[in-house]
Amino acid sequence: MLFTQSLASLPYIIISIIIAFTVHEFAHAYVAYKFGDPTAQKQGRLTFNPIAHIDPIGAIFILIAGFGWARPVPVNRHYFKRPKLAGVLVSFAGPFSNLVLAFLGFGGMVLLQKLGVPTGTAFDLYPFLSKFVSINLMLFAFNLLPLPPLDGYRIIEDLVTSRVRAMLSKYEVYGSIIFIILLVTGLSSQTISPWISNISAFFYNIFISIFY
């Protein structure tokens, strides 16, 4: 849980969450707008203003429980000329934006090292960037879980046939229930946590291979 970490790192975590959530939701809105859906833009969601995207309860949950949410971006598929393709790209845009942020954050950490910036100084951004990278990788992996209402589930919805999609929609209501059960029973440590850890480790290794 992020909340259990030292108070000294809490500002880094909060700032990282605000940036990560804001860019994530903006990415959904931007890609939907580019595919012809003005819904999010008309509702003021095509912006980098965190106030338009942050859900206070969802932000608190990510501190306490290790997962949370922002305000979902409204998407009207009727505007899309190719609904399935647009749907997949709109859904993937959010997690992908977190992966890009993690990549940039890791690059910043490498730059600090190569510049020889000493730790513990006013110019040492390493502790912040370290949290920034880990949180964005966590959000990338978490949002790709194939459970409603996460982006991973939405991607699957658009990849399957209309018949399967209709069948899946009947069980969407159980998505939140599944999360609660996993948390309350502690099963998240055997399911969600390993997924996030493995995906994060995989991309950490890719970043290392790129920058070193």
Rank of each mutant, 00 (worst) to 15 (best):
M1H: 10
L2H: 07
F3Y: 11
T4P: 06
P11H: 13
S16C: 11
T22N: 14
E25Y: 02
F26W: 12
A29C: 10
A29S: 10
Y30Q: 13
Y33E: 08
Y33L: 07
P38S: 02
Q41S: 15
Q41L: 11
K42I: 15
Q43M: 13
G44V: 05
T47S: 14
N49G: 08
P50Y: 11
I54V: 12
D55C: 01
I64T: 01
A65S: 12
F67S: 04
G68M: 11
W69I: 12
R71D: 10
V73Q: 01
P74Q: 07
H78W: 10
Y79H: 09
Y79P: 05
P83K: 05
K84G: 04
A86P: 13
G87M: 06
V88G: 01
S91D: 02
F92Y: 00
A93D: 02
A93R: 08
A93G: 09
F96D: 04
L99H: 00
L99I: 13
L101N: 04
L101A: 04
A102K: 02
L104M: 11
G107N: 08
G108R: 12
L111R: 01
L111C: 09
K114F: 05
G116D: 03
G120L: 14
F123C: 01
L125I: 13
F128A: 04
L129D: 06
K131E: 14
F132I: 13
F132V: 08
S134P: 01
L137Y: 05
L144M: 15
L150K: 07
Y153Q: 10
I156K: 07
E157S: 13
L159R: 01
L159Q: 01
R163T: 14
K170P: 03
K170L: 14
Y171F: 12
E172Y: 00
G175P: 09
I177K: 07
T185Y: 08
L187P: 00
L187I: 04
S188A: 11
N198L: 15
I199D: 06
S200T: 15
F203V: 14
F203P: 05
N205A: 06
I210L: 08
F211T: 05
